[in-house]
Simulated assay, not measured.
Amino acid sequence: MVKLVLMHKAGSIYDDLPDQVYDFPRQYLKAMKEAVGDWIVYYEPVKAGPRGYFATAQIDRVIPKPDQDGRFLALIRPGSFLPFDREVPRLLDGSPLESALTALDGTPLTGGLDQSAVRRIPEPDFARIVDLGLPQQLEEIEARRYDPRSFDMAEGAQAFERPVVERLLRRSYRDIAFRRKVRDAYDYRCAISGLRLRNGGGRPEVQAAHIRPVEHGGSDSVRNGLALSGTLHWMFDRGLISVAEDCSILVSRNKVPADVVDRLLLPGGKLIPPRDPTDAPHPENLRWHRENIFGQTAPGDVAW
C-alpha cells in the first residue's frame, strides 16, 4: 500500500465528491491501485484557491468509470473522510511539505510532479501534513477553548502521542473535528432558527448534526452537517423536520404543534446557508434524510 496526494478543486468538471469518490484518468491507475486500503490527503491546486491541503480519507477500492473508457473511480471508504481542522499551506517557512517537491536548498521544485493530480507521498510527509491539519491535542484544544481549567489537573503530564491513523479512526476525535468545522461553517448560528446562543462562559449552544448518520453511511464532511440548536437537532434526528431540495424547512405537521413551529422556525422557513457556499448541504444527503428519516417517528413517540 502507499499513501497519495489527490488534487481536487470545488466545482470540478469531473465526478469528484471528496467524501465519496475521486474521478481520475488511466495514467494514475497504478498508483491508485497501490493505495487501496491506505490513506490520502486532498490538495487544492494553486489556480483553484488558497486552501492547500484540506482533508484526508481512505481509498476503499478502484473501479472503471461506467460508460467512459480510460477513466476510473476511486471509491472512498465510508466513514473515513475527515476535513482538516485548519487548512495546511502549500509552503511552510518557504519550503514544501512534500519532500519530493523540495530542492536540496529547501526551495520548491517547479514543473513536473507538483502539477500531477495524483502523487505518492512518504509516510513522514503524510503524518506531518495530518498533524498540522488535525492536531494531536484537538480534544484538549476544544475543551480549553471555553474553559481553560478543563485540563488543569493534567498540567505537567506528558501527552500520549497516538499514531496518526489510530487518531483518524477514533470516533471521539472525529466527532470533535466534525463539530468544530460545522459550527464554524455556520458562524455558530442555528441553520433553522437563526439563533446564535452562548452560555454564561461564552460556550456556543449550537450543535453539529449529521444529515445522514455515520452508522447509515454518512460522512464527516461539512456538507453532511447542519449547525442546529439542541431542540432542533433532536427533532431533525427523529424525522420531525427535514429540508427540501430548495432548502425550505419541512415539518411533520401531524406530529409537531403549530405553535411549536412558529416559535422555532425563521419567518420564511428557509435554511440559513453557511458562510462559504461550497460548504452547503449536499442535495443527496438532504434527499436521503427526507426519504429515510423524515416522518418516520410514530406519533406516540413524541411528547410536548
Rank of each mutant, 00 (worst) to 15 (best):
Q207V: 06
E155M: 09
H216I: 04
Y173S: 05
R198N: 13
E205K: 06
R198P: 08
L195R: 14
S193A: 14
R183A: 04
V182E: 01
C190N: 06
R212W: 11
N199G: 02
K181Q: 09
A154L: 11
A177N: 01
Q158I: 12
E161S: 09
R149Q: 07
I211V: 14
N224V: 10
R171T: 10
K181A: 10
A185P: 13
L169M: 11
H210M: 08
E205I: 11
L197Q: 13
G201R: 15
Y173V: 08
S172L: 03
Y173I: 04
N199E: 12
R223E: 06
Y186G: 00
V222L: 05
M153V: 13
D152V: 04
G194V: 03
D184L: 13
M153T: 13
Y188S: 03
Q207P: 08
G218H: 06
A177V: 08
G156L: 02
F160Y: 12
S219G: 09
R212A: 10
H216Y: 12
I211F: 05
R189A: 10
G194W: 02
V182K: 02
F151N: 12
S172P: 03
R179E: 06
V182W: 00
G217D: 05
G217M: 06
C190T: 07
R196E: 13
S221K: 02
E205N: 08
V214H: 13
P213G: 07
S193W: 08
G217E: 05
F160C: 07
C190P: 12
G156W: 00
V214T: 07
D220C: 05
M153E: 13
I176L: 07
Y173E: 02
G218L: 05
R180Y: 02
R203A: 15
L195G: 03
D152A: 08
G202S: 09
K181M: 09
M153P: 09
A208M: 08
G202I: 11
A185C: 13
H210A: 06
A159S: 08
A185Q: 08
E161C: 03
R183T: 14
R212M: 13
C190D: 14
Y186F: 15
F160M: 09
L169V: 15
D187T: 14
A159H: 07
A159D: 04
A154G: 05
R180H: 04
D187P: 09
I192T: 04
H216T: 10
E161K: 07
E205L: 15
A154M: 07
E155G: 10
Y188V: 00
